[in-house]
């Protein structure tokens, strides 16, 4: 597994849809171009929502790691 230097880690476990996505959007807004944000989510919808949003917003999904019912998304701010 490739390791990414993560600038900001968000733990949205226990938060229901659309909570984790909203936390990611907020973190991305507060980040600078090139910075990397990691998001932890237990919400099943996130698996679809996060990649869709990242594509729509023009950022880069570096990795998706699954561990049991927790998914960790690593996203780079691209613009």
């Amino acid at each position: 597994m490739t390791q990414f230097a993560v600038d900001r880690e968000i733990d949205a476990r226990g938060s229901a849809c659309p909570g984790p996505l909203m936390e990611l959007i907020r973190a991305m807004k507060a980040s600078r171009k090139g910075q990397v944000v990691a998001l932890l989510s237990e919400d099943q919808g996130s698996k679809v929502d996060v990649p869709q949003w990242v594509e729509k917003a023009g950022h880069k999904l570096l990795a998706v790691e699954e561990d049991g019912n927790v998914t960790r998304f690593i996203v780079q701010k691209a613009r």
Binding site: L21, I25, D49, Q52, W53, K56
Partner: peptide
């Protein structure tokens, strides 16, 4: 509210 959030998030 959730649908509005989704719409807003998807620009």
């Amino acid at each position: 509210s959730i649908l509005a959030t989704g719409g807003a998030a998807m620009d």
